[in-house]
Design a protein around this nucleic acid. Sequence first.
DNA 1: CCCGGACGGTATAGATTCGATACCGGTATC
DNA 2: GATACCGGTATCGAATCTATACCGTCCGGG
Lengths: 120, 120
Amino acid sequence: MGNAYNVMAATCPSRTVLHRIGARWTVFIVNALDNRPMRFTELKAHIRGITPKALTEALRAMEYDGLISRTEIPASPPHVEYALTDLGRSLLTPLRAIREWAESHVPDIERARARADAQR
Amino acid sequence: MGNAYNVMAATCPSRTVLHRIGARWTVFIVNALDNRPMRFTELKAHIRGITPKALTEALRAMEYDGLISRTEIPASPPHVEYALTDLGRSLLTPLRAIREWAESHVPDIERARARADAQR
DNA sequence: CCCGGACGGTATAGATTCGATACCGGTATC
DNA sequence: GATACCGGTATCGAATCTATACCGTCCGGG
């Protein structure tokens, strides 16, 4: 059956969805939460180079879209846990594929860039 | 075998690769060039809402990275054709998956957003 | 020869987002 | 009481993206 949505259409709602998936840190967060929930500082340590502001914004946005859940745990000391929702977990396969493509094609891209640089 | 690259490392070159894949228009362009080369204006018409500047920049960047090729065809009238390279074609499968995820999960995301909005 | 249109872009300005850095309130531990 | 960790905010300047207007080349028609 055909799909009701088409990202190529300027005003299609799938555009905003795609925009969120493609946002700077989404792929990192989904991959990081792959096999267990994590706390804020844990995520920050795991995803090297992310600033707390960027992490906060990404987590809030993903929570808003139902990709992750934020749970305050009233233990002592209290802390916060972020976890993938079912919806977020369904993103895991495609985003893991993206991550793997990136990691496995670094030499190809670097070769292409070097060739392009040399051409001038 | 383990991978030599890891996107979670702050300075890993795979970061720049991932950044390019995740750039605003890459997924659109790769999907558009799926089964045939296209000309500039054709791409612009196909990817609704993209500005010529954004398209130019995205195409240049993707050419630099070896994902697409740009060919000036000296016919009459002369024109320009953009096509996926082998490397670009290898991105097709993961990026098509992303597109399909976006198109098929619109209702889920919209429900989540509505629920979050209602909560306040 | 001149006009108009299609093609493949540039130029410029404004809005938006991003990153770096510093700071902060609450809780627990020493 | 001092110190440290957690989960963030605040602020500001730099980089990026969008909208809009414009442009040179080539071509076909009149």
